[in-house]
Amino acid sequence: MMRPKLAFALSPGKTRHVFDAAALERLAQSCDILSTQPMESFASPEAQRLLAQAEVLLTGWGCPMIGPEVLRMAPGLRLIAHAAGTVKFNVDPAAYARGVRVTHSAEANAVPVAEYTLASIIFANKRAFDLRDLYRADPTRVTSYRLMDEPIGNFRRTVGIVGASRIGRRVIAMLAGFDLDVLLYDPFVQPSDPIAAQVQLVELDALMARSDVVSLHAPSLPSTRHMIGARQLRLLRDGAAFINTARGALVDEAALLAELQTGRIQAVIDVTDPEIPVLDSPLYTLPNVFLTPHIAGAIGTERLRLGHMAIEEIERFVRGEPMLYEIEPAFLERLA
């Protein structure tokens, strides 16, 4: 196979560290790079010139939607390799109709999300955030010791995982090294699934009621919008923690805020709906909320994994080998 011509379509401001010099040098071994300057829009004459030649589009965060009009400008396009997670906001189903193959680096992005989740579970069970605040307010440690005497910690506690996604499965694998009981709710997981040997499969209500920590890992679909609402949150036991590193739309935020404002439960929230809460949102100030600005996924040098995985997929494509993370058309609508 001749070396395919490759162009980039992404936002440099959002993708720093995804491709370092070594990654670009490696990419140049298998492809003819038309330009190292990425396209942030497909409207300019230069973008149209690149699209007319491109056989491979290496995309990332900030890539515009690749729809029918863009596909008409790229008659030779054969592969879209997305150096990020979901492609459903970047790739129109028309690409599949045209025979364009699509792969992504969601598996690489899953690594830091699972790591963040594991850390959150450990800290939540230890009530680390509460103890930090108590210690600041009371350096004598009297109030800290009082909380330490409660049945907290990471021994013989129960963790509930909602969604056996790639991230949910990674978290479950990580939890295998701890003295924790793990519950899983996922309506698509059958008892024959190997994951069932590592968890107890339960319904969502049972998981919410029995868990000390609940971690959400479901995809954001019309059918899963607000799947965690007031009824589910009321089932959480006093002192339980709720973790969301998936998507904000999965949770009825008003119901979550109402429950949090009672002080009865804790929360680690990395994603919200809208993406940035309104300025007067109680999420910013509630003492029982650990709020982060969507950092569980790849940030800083963690982004290098995204570029490496996309390049590895391109190399397999060039060699005529099966790609490991190709997205089949039927799976596109179920992506997170």
Rank of each mutant, 00 (worst) to 15 (best):
R49S: 15
V142Q: 15
S11D: 15
D280P: 06
R237V: 03
E312C: 14
G229E: 03
I276F: 09
P277A: 03
R316N: 15
I66N: 02
V91D: 13
Q232Y: 04
R247Q: 09
A83V: 11
Q198V: 11
V199D: 09
I167T: 12
R334C: 07
D149N: 10
L34W: 12
A47G: 03
F129W: 15
F317W: 09
F42K: 00
V278G: 13
L236Q: 09
A255D: 02
L131T: 13
Q266H: 13
A21E: 07
E275Y: 02
Y135Q: 14
D130A: 14
Y116M: 07
E313V: 01
H308W: 11
A95P: 05
C31W: 12
E46S: 14
L256N: 01
D179P: 05
N288C: 09
R157I: 10
P112E: 06
A28M: 13
P287I: 05
M148L: 13
K5D: 15
L58I: 13
L256P: 04
Y116W: 14
A176R: 12
G168K: 00
H308V: 15
E333F: 06
E321P: 08
L184P: 14
A23C: 07
S35N: 04
C63I: 10
V100G: 05
L204M: 09
R3E: 09
S192C: 08
D280A: 06
I122S: 08
L131C: 03
E333D: 11
G99P: 01
T15R: 02
S105N: 01
A110K: 04
L257Q: 02
M174V: 11
A246E: 05
V271N: 06
M73F: 10
L279K: 10
L207A: 01
D280L: 01
K88C: 07
F19E: 03
M73K: 04
N244E: 09
E25M: 05
Q29P: 13
V100M: 00
E253V: 07
N154G: 04
G300V: 11
L256G: 03
P64L: 01
T292S: 04
F123S: 13
G263A: 03
A218Q: 10
M65W: 13
I269M: 05
Q37C: 10
L279P: 11
F89P: 12
I276L: 12
L134M: 09
Y145K: 11
A176L: 11
